[in-house]
Computed example of a mutant assay.
Amino acid sequence: MLENFWFNVKIGIDHILDINGYDHVLFLMVLAVPYVFKDWKRVLVLVSIFTIGHSISLILGAYDVVTVNGKLVEFLIPITILIAAIYNVFTAGKKDRGNKIGLLFFTTLFFGLIHGLGFAREFNMISDNSLVFLLEFALGIEIAQVIIVFVVLFLGFLCQTIFRFSRRDWVMVLSAIVIGLVIPMVIQSDLLN
């Protein structure tokens, strides 16, 4: 029983940390980059809201409650990353980011729903789509996301303390890199070709 639990959790972790599926990592990077270690609670809440969103759509998709065109989902996932990265570029260094928490949480949940539809497409290829497996898989995803966010916060700490990047510059540079990586994903989408 415990062996199956860890196996299923590991599937979720491996799914996120797979180098070929780096779109999820890019989204987490732009989600976390505006924050520093002292904001860890807010970042953890955002990541958890994202997990709730994609877990809901994963479960609905796995049980065929919701079906969406796969090409549309594969187009929308990089669009969510692009929107988040552009938002960071335009709000980097602004002091009022905390005032729009409700909108940020809602947007993160909505983007999680979209990303979860991508998981659901892949999940339908797995024979075991029991609710327990889905939840264990989601736990693995959450663990991997926390690891990625911790790495982004740690790199931000290093760049801002050792290399003396301003917080604004760190957000702008990392967000610009993500934009550069995600634009080809949007252009090469099957929906556009």
Rank of each mutant, 00 (worst) to 15 (best):
I52W: 04
F123W: 10
L103P: 00
V89M: 04
G102K: 11
K94P: 00
V89Y: 01
A92I: 15
I59Q: 04
F110Q: 03
L103Q: 13
K100Q: 04
A84S: 10
H115I: 07
G116T: 01
L60P: 11
A120F: 04
A92G: 11
G61T: 02
N69S: 12
V68D: 14
L103M: 11
G61Q: 06
N99A: 12
A92V: 11
A85R: 02
F50S: 10
G116P: 04
A62P: 00
F111Y: 05
T67L: 15
K100I: 01
I59M: 10
G53E: 09
F105Q: 03
V68F: 14
N69E: 12
T108K: 05
V73G: 01
S55E: 06
I59S: 05
I114C: 03
G118I: 07
T80C: 05
A85K: 02
N124P: 01
V73P: 00
F90M: 09
F111N: 01
E74V: 07
H54T: 08
I86N: 08
G93W: 14
I81A: 15
N88F: 05
I52F: 09
V73A: 04
K71F: 14
F90V: 12
I81Y: 08
L76G: 04
L109F: 13
A84G: 03
I79A: 05
N88S: 06
E74M: 07
G102L: 13
K100G: 04
I52P: 12
G116H: 03
F106P: 00
G112C: 06
I81T: 03
I101C: 09
F123G: 05
K100M: 02
N124E: 14
L103C: 02
Y87R: 10
K100D: 01
G118H: 05
L117E: 00
F119Y: 11
G70R: 09
V73K: 11
A84C: 05
F50G: 05
R121A: 12
K71E: 15
L113K: 03
S55N: 08
E74C: 08
G112P: 12
I86W: 09
K71M: 13
S57L: 09
L82A: 12
F111K: 00
F75D: 07
A85C: 11
G98I: 14
T51F: 09
P78C: 11
